[in-house]
């Protein structure tokens, strides 16, 4: 049992089987051989396209699903054999409309969750009020949840997920449905939670959010781990891309196509930038295409040329395509 790690997955796998007729069932590999270790007190991002296995991983770690191979531990407790101990230490925040009682008020939803988790009723009441205030729902606390907007429901998910003051928090697309202000407030709240010693496992499709919040990221695709590291490591070591950003004062109709034909160029994107044009070119790492790009555009037309590491989104697309 290694308590340096909040979460440990070792060769974790999950296969879903459907169909009850022998020999005619269908198997879907949702997760395969996932090995990751999440240190205590960090935000760990689990990224990947839809169906990559992110939610399956969270379901296994939150004791809602048993793995079909491998093992997982949360705070040193096995998620299958010591599920009770795991549940006493975790919280999860879902994304979306489901998982709430529409006929109860926001406050009742949170208090019901407190009763379900055997919190002292007085403590649950106090924390429910504090958290509803914290997520900006104090004025709507006594309104039925069926009258909430999607963003309000998302805030309620957050309040409920934090009610038990968990050591490890699973956040499955927590900013989905939130308006920009709400999303920003949550993003500001996450470092605060980490400052209190909590560990957060975050799934999101917003790369900027992952880049901003995560200390470490695991990128998974079709159930398999394809990249693991800090956001900077992912961008540099896994993406296999260099990005050129070029501001030009004059362009031609065929320039984008010509640039695309240069060896090593993977993607070209042009956009207006004031009176100039900005061209963003993704080039395979290790290919020296700078001279050819300059020659194709024409040096006299180039106002500025910068080579930079890819953003997390560019790296994500590069790794997964």
């Amino acid at each position: 049992m290694n308590r340096d790690f909040a979460i440990e997955c070792e060769s974790l796998g999950r296969i879903y089987r459907s169909g009850s007729i022998p020999g005619r069932g269908r198997e879907t590999v949702a997760l395969s051989d996932l090995t990751v270790q999440v240190p205590n007190g960090v935000v760990f991002g689990l990224l990947g396209p839809n169906g990559a296995g992110k939610t399956t991983t969270i379901r296994i770690l939150s004791t809602l699903l048993t793995p079909t191979s491998g093992s997982a531990r949360v705070l040193g407790y096995d998620v299958v054999k010591q599920a009770k101990q795991v549940r006493e230490r975790i919280g999860f925040i879902l994304g979306g409309d489901r998982g709430l009682y529409g006929r109860l008020t926001g406050k009742q939803n949170v208090r019901y969750f407190g009763a379900l988790n055997r919190l002292n009723p007085k403590t649950a009441k106090r924390r429910a009020n504090e958290l509803l205030e914290r997520v900006g729902l104090a004025s709507a606390a006594d309104t039925l949840v069926e009258e909430y907007s999607r963003g309000m429901k998302q805030r309620l998910h957050i309040a409920r997920g934090l009610l038990t003051d968990p050591e490890v928090i699973f956040m499955d697309e927590p900013t989905i449905g939130l308006d920009p202000m709400g999303a920003q407030e949550l993003r500001q709240y996450i470092p605060e939670l980490v400052g209190q010693g909590k560990t957060i496992l975050l799934t999101t499709h917003y790369m900027l959010e992952a880049d901003m919040l995560c200390d470490e990221i695991a990128l998974i695709d079709r159930g398999r781990l394809v990249a693991l590291g800090t956001p900077d490591e992912i961008k540099r070591n896994f993406s296999r891309l260099t990005i050129f950003e070029i501001v030009v004062n004059q362009t031609t109709e065929t320039l984008t196509a010509e640039l695309s034909n240069i060896d090593g160029v993977q993607h070209v994107e042009a956009s207006a930038e004031g009176i100039f044009q900005k061209i963003t070119i993704a080039v395979k790492a290790g290919v020296d295409a700078r001279d050819k790009i300059q020659a194709t555009i024409g040096v006299q037309r180039i106002e500025n040329l910068v080579a930079r590491d890819p953003t997390l989104e560019e790296a994500y697309v590069s790794i997964l395509t």
Binding site: E88, L100, F113, N117
Partner: peptide
Amino acid sequence: TFGTLSLIYASRSNRWVT
């Protein structure tokens, strides 16, 4: 149907009491 069963399954609650 409401998707709240997971809250029970992932909770610390005694299932018989629930």
